[in-house]
Design a protein around this nucleic acid. Structure first.
Length: 516
DNA sequence: TCTGGCACTTA
DNA sequence: GTAAGTGCCAG
């Protein structure tokens, strides 16, 4: 779904893109919610990689915040369900001469299973093991307790393959992430010193559910999702529902007869308390390679609807210039990540992420490892290419939902470029679980912006797609390569990495909206 | 909890 | 008119 907002207008030429962009950013930051301002790394190598100026903005952040404040829930079904709000980001600061791969994934936010009782979410036990590293076709692999969300297909993307899905567990919390991997000719993907950064928007975290638990979320969905328009205007159903929930305190009112709007303020749920809101660590946090992180309370909702503060601080492992130090106007202060990790400061965080303190070094849990594999994309069962189960994903580093921008020492790919690239991440101590992502190698960037919308819920994203000019790109550069679709493990061998304009989704099929 | 049919909507 | 995306709700 192409984004047509003027705010996403892009410079037409790389030469003046920077200056124009900077001006534009000033106007857009508030609207979009600047979340990442990649600093220039003190590491010369990284600076050479050209990742220092990358910024990522979450589109419709205000809406996300509304949901987040209440406690975002995403419906998951067998057939798959779109996410709402949609995950839409704008990336700026890309080097016009460099090709990038944008990936998106959804990872477990913690190791807990939740329940919704007494109008609040609370931990009810340990999370169930995630699916092994395998993607599924719609309706497949969605066994007991596991459902999927079907990623939406990019507008204009001639995606003829079954929509892949990411399998998620109901009543579990997840965190979408965005990864930007540099993949140009001089530094092909999978090669040594591959630069990448990961961006996490804490406000996009959600709990997967089979039916909405919090009526406030239902109302927000109805009010904001056009497809739910039919439920707007009258809260008869709400009354009906309330009457049921309140033991006939209200009469059961037929939907067709009730037209009186019920103010949310009068909702019996309006007075709900938010557990641990006071101790919530909702600050968006940057994590930089240079050991600097920043936290901004103002970036996030005032209260944490979830029982524990595992709202991952917005952590960015980015290499930035010292003078920027990962800071943005929305991240007024920063602190050394290693010195004051959320896990160390916040007991709830610690309880939520008991094993996250060893960031970048090891998996939190075995379950986390499985989940990492889970998010690694794999081809549909019928696809001849090997699945991730064949990959030593267990050796992947433990990378919670924080973002990272770094030059990771990745081993050159022995096999096909981009194929099984997740396996190569095993050697990169800082490489997140990139497999379950939608990636997108930017075309020859005449544009320094890249916008991608991810609309989906949960599902394995088994397909690596290459969305060319007709894949939802509004004003495709004339020099774009033709669109091609790639299996995550079956990349056409005739293509070199830098020829791609691909969407590798292991988790979601983002809708690309790339302005140029 | 979860499912499938339903009414309603957008595209 | 059709296909597909919504939440509702009885079971």
């Amino acid at each position: 779904m192409a984004d047509t907002e003027e705010g996403f207008g892009l410079p037409t030429t790389p030469a003046d893109s920077e200056s124009k962009e900077l001006q534009a950013e000033t106007k857009q930051d508030t609207q979009l919610g600047a979340t990442s301002k990649s600093p220039t790394s003190p590491q010369a190598a990284f600076t050479q990689q050209g990742m220092e100026g990358i910024k990522v903005f979450l589109h419709e952040r205000e809406l996300w915040l509304k949901f987040h404040e209440v406690g975002t829930e995403m419906i998951i079904t067998k057939a798959g369900r779109r996410m709402f709000p949609s995950y839409k980001v704008k990336v700026t600061g890309l080097n016009p001469k460099t090709k990038y791969i944008l990936l998106m994934d959804i990872v477990p936010a913690d190791d807990h299973r939740y329940k919704f009782a007494d109008n609040k979410w609370s931990v009810t036990g340990k999370a169930e093991p995630a699916m092994p590293g395998r993607a599924s076709s719609p309706g497949r692999d969605v066994g007991r307790g596991r459902r999927a969300v079907t990623p939406s297909i990019p507008t204009g993307c001639p995606f003829l393959l079954p929509v892949p899905q990411i399998i998620l567990n109901s009543m579990h919390k997840y965190q979408p992430r965005l990864h930007i991997v540099k993949a140009d000719e001089n530094n092909g993907f999978g090669s040594k010193n591959t630069a990448f950064c990961t961006h996490v928007f804490p406000e996009t975290a959600f709990i997967a559910v089979t039916s909405y638990q919090n009526h406030k979320i239902t109302q927000l969905k109805i009010e904001n999702n056009p497809f739910a328009k039919g439920f707007r205007g009258s809260d008869d159903m709400e009354l009906h529902r309330m009457s049921r929930m309140q033991s006939k305190e209200y009469p059961v009112v037929p939907r067709s007869t009730v037209r009186q709007k019920v103010s949310s303020n009068h909702s019996p749920f309006s007075g709900e308390t938010r557990v641990l809101s006071a101790s919530s660590n909702l600050g968006s946090q940057y994590q930089c390679e240079n050991g600097v992180s920043s936290t901004s309370q103002d970036l996030l909702p005032p209260a944490n609807p979830y029982p524990i503060s595992q709202e991952h601080s917005q952590i960015y492992h980015c290499t930035k210039r010292k003078d920027e130090e990962c800071s943005t106007t929305e991240h007024p202060y920063k602190k050394p990540y290693m010195e004051t990790s959320p896990a160390e400061e916040d007991p709830f965080y610690r309880s939520s992420y008991p094993q996250q303190q060893g960031l970048n070094t090891s998996y939190r849990t075995e379950s986390a490892q499985r989940q990492a594999c889970m998010y690694a994309s794999s081809a549909p069962p019928t696809d001849p290419v090997p699945s991730l189960e064949d990959i030593s994903c267990n050796t992947w580093p433990s990378v919670p939902s924080y973002s990272s921008c770094t030059v990771s020492a990745m081993q050159p790919m022995d096999r096909l470029p981009y194929q099984h690239f997740s396996a190569h991440f095993t050697s990169g101590p800082l490489m997140p679980r990139l497999s379950s992502v939608a990636n997108h190698t930017s075309p020859q960037i005449g544009d320094t912006h890249s916008m991608f919308q991810h609309q989906t819920s949960v599902s394995h994203q088994p397909i690596v797609r290459q969305c060319g000019p007709q894949t939802g790109i509004q004003s495709p550069p004339s020099n774009l390569q033709p669109a091609e679709f790639l299996y995550s493990h079956g990349v056409p061998r005739t293509l070199s990495p830098h020829q791609y304009h691909s969407v590798h989704g292991v988790g979601m099929v983002p809708e690309w909206s790339e302005n140029s």
